[in-house]
């Protein structure tokens, strides 16, 4: 894929430390708008309000309503008009207000956004970024906590990216916007308020799309995860020390393209792997990842690859969601089932 390196933003960034993921995303949009006049942001409540999660805060004031536009309330319309804008050479970034409210735009996504390059033999690529806050853990009522990554990853023609750290939120969003292919950019909403020492004015690093990263090296087993489940896996790896396990953690960052090399190398080093995600397990990303690990690392494996995922149920109401979300105990329980030799 083509990933142009965007120029540094025109405006000096406020020196705020530590920054949250929400602020890093805001900064990335800001810098993308400043760097490239063809970038246009569209969505519901993103102008005056700055988005329900404030990710577009201040952008309409600085860049004007035509660069950061409050649309009518219609997701199919938002994405469909973004397709037309991209056909004419603009670089739209659309915001879907919540995961489940992106569904009206599914036809535009699957039938046009994903296929236009292929249908036109490369003559009409669509450089559209579709930002979607996703996942649970924030006590949202129904339709506010879906993890829909498997639908998107199953659709050829779409890149699917999800940051898990403040730094990556900035770097990956810049790369997504710069990409000439459409990118579904999934923002783990329960990490919006997570903090890091990342500062908006330190050299803005654009992360190439398609590379996983090893967040923690380990010798006993490898946890493979992404997005909202990364902090849970890191916590589990810490807790596992008590059991005498030294767990490695791989953060995929990009589900499509899928970085087989990094994953396979990590698993070969341990011989044991558990894939962790909060979306339902059946037909989910974990199945794809486990299959690939088995294909690539069969002779290195000491145990079948296990999955820890959300149950195969509609997302629960707020008061019951803690039973659904994979937590440290469920991860450690899976690690314990990786056929360790006695003694």
């Amino acid at each position: 894929m083509t990933t142009a390196t965007p120029a540094a933003g025109r405006t000096a960034a406020p020196a705020r430390k530590p920054a949250t993921m929400a602020q890093a995303l805001n900064r990335a949009l800001h810098d993308a708008l400043a760097a490239d006049d063809s970038v246009h942001v569209l969505g519901e409540d993103i102008g005056t309000l700055g988005g329900v999660f404030r990710i577009t805060d201040g952008l309409a004031a600085e860049f004007g309503d035509s660069r950061c536009t409050d649309t009518p309330l219609a997701e199919a319309g938002i994405l469909g008009t973004a397709v037309g804008m991209a056909m004419y050479g603009l670089r739209p970034v659309v915001e879907m207000q919540f995961d489940a409210f992106a569904y009206p735009s599914f036809e535009q996504l699957v039938s046009h956004v994903a296929k236009m390059r292929n249908r036109t033999r490369g003559a009409m690529p669509l450089p559209i970024t579709i930002r979607i806050p996703y996942g649970g853990g924030i006590g949202g009522v129904e339709h506010h906590s879906d993890s829909s990554e498997a639908y998107y990853a199953h659709t050829p023609g779409l890149h699917v990216v999800t940051p898990a750290t403040v730094e990556d939120a900035y770097g990956l969003l810049r790369a997504a916007i710069a990409s000439d292919d459409p990118v579904v950019f999934l923002e783990p909403k329960r990490l919006y308020w997570s903090k890091s020492d990342w500062s908006p004015e330190t050299p803005a690093k654009v992360e190439p799309i398609g590379r996983a990263v090893v967040r923690r090296t380990g010798r006993s087993a490898t946890l493979i995860t992404y997005g909202p489940s990364l902090p849970v896996c890191l916590e589990a790896a810490e807790a596992a020390k008590e059991e005498g396990w030294d767990l490695g953690v791989v953060d995929l960052r990009s589900l499509v393209p899928f970085d087989e090399e990094t994953v396979a190398a990590a698993v070969r080093g341990t011989g044991r792997a558990v894939v962790v995600h909060e979306s339902s397990g059946f037909g989910g990303m974990g199945a794809e990842i486990a299959a690939r690990i088995t294909e690539r690392c069969f002779h290195h494996l000491e145990a079948p690859v296990l999955r820890v995922a959300g149950f195969d149920i509609p997302y629960p109401p707020p008061m019951l969601e803690r039973h659904h979300l994979p937590g440290v105990d469920r991860i450690l329980d899976a690690v314990g089932r990786l056929q360790w030799e006695e003694g």
Partner: peptide, 11 residues
């Protein structure tokens, strides 16, 4: 209103 969006942006 639709959350923050006034009528002239809706119709």
């Amino acid at each position: 209103f639709a959350i923050s969006v006034p009528l002239d942006k809706q119709t």
